[in-house]
């Protein structure tokens, strides 16, 4: 293993989805030993405290600051450009279900069409709806930072009755008819939008998707049905996602378990 000083410095930044990454590492599903790793984040309400202050990624509000520091374990209060070689944003209040559901409904159900220019704007707007993404994009643009962004995945199949009023399939009933080409279209739009910001976007792979627009239930977070939690995913899912960022992190884990 490279020495501490030789390993690339990696910071995993995220909201509650970050927990699945941590658990994946603990469970040996993810081998991050090639990196000098720090976690930095907070669950939803506190994660919204993430701000850009004097060119540094910082946290607004005492409670949020404390939560970020606690998750980090070393009391980290902020991140300056260049402090890490790699920044991976995970979850970060960006929910792919929102983007996929609405666009697939327009495409498959409502007969809507947005021109390529409009679609590109929509993709940029979706990503930029997250302050964390915007900060990451600024770090990439202004400091050449290596930024990867892993948005929150699609809802998990079967966890809730999505046809109830106001629920996902009540709002986007035709999205279940989405096929690989429909999803590829959305993937492409998002990936191109992120790339134009210098951000590497990592989206959940096709093999994790069922029923057009849901995550396969095998990736559900533990007790997802009991807790009615369609958003969070399992450690195995986190490992799969990060393996797209760096295949070594899962290859190493697999080798260690062999």
């Amino acid at each position: 293993m490279p020495s501490h000083a030789e390993r690339p410095r990696l910071c995993l930044i995220g909201d509650s989805h970050l927990a699945s990454v941590r658990l994946a590492e603990r469970q040996g599903l993810l081998d991050l030993s090639g990196y000098d790793v720090e976690y930095w984040g907070a669950f939803g309400p506190h994660f919204r405290g993430l701000v850009l202050r004097n060119g540094r990624m910082a946290v607004h509000g005492a409670k949020a600051r404390a939560e970020f520091a606690r998750i980090n374990g070393n009391g980290r209060a902020d991140i300056a450009p260049g402090e890490f070689d790699e920044l991976v944003f995970y979850g970060c209040r960006v929910r792919c279900s929102d983007f996929f559901g609405q666009h697939l409904q327009r495409r498959l159900g409502d007969g809507g069409w947005q021109s390529r220019a409009v679609m590109a704007m929509s993709a940029r707007g979706f990503l930029a709806s997250s302050r964390a993404y915007r900060i990451g994009a600024i770090f990439a643009r202004d400091h050449g930072a290596r930024i990867a962004f892993v948005p929150g995945p699609l809802l998990t199949a079967g966890v809730q009755d999505y046809e109830q009023p106001g629920q996902f399939l009540d709002l986007f009933p035709d999205s279940v008819r989405a096929g690989p080409e429909d999803r590829a279209w959305l993937r492409s739009e998002l990936t191109v939008a992120a790339a134009s910001d210098g951000v590497r976007l990592i989206l959940q792979p096709e093999e994790t998707i069922v029923d057009g627009v849901f995550t396969d239930a095998v990736y559900a977070v533990e007790a997802a049905v009991e807790n009615q939690d369609p958003g969070h995913k399992s450690p195995a899912f986190a490992a799969l996602m990060l393996s797209q960022w760096d295949s070594a992190v899962i290859e190493g884990a697999n080798a260690a378990r062999a």
Binding site: S16, A19, G44, G73, S129, L155, F172
Partner: peptide, 25 residues
């Protein structure tokens, strides 16, 4: 109109529990 909306999905209390569990030291 049932204007398509951006929805807040997972309850924050769940988010907190997930984080507490994963990062308990």
């Amino acid at each position: 109109n049932a204007r398509l909306m951006q929805s807040e999905k997972a309850a924050d209390v769940q988010c907190e529990e997930v984080m507490l569990d994963a990062f308990a030291r």
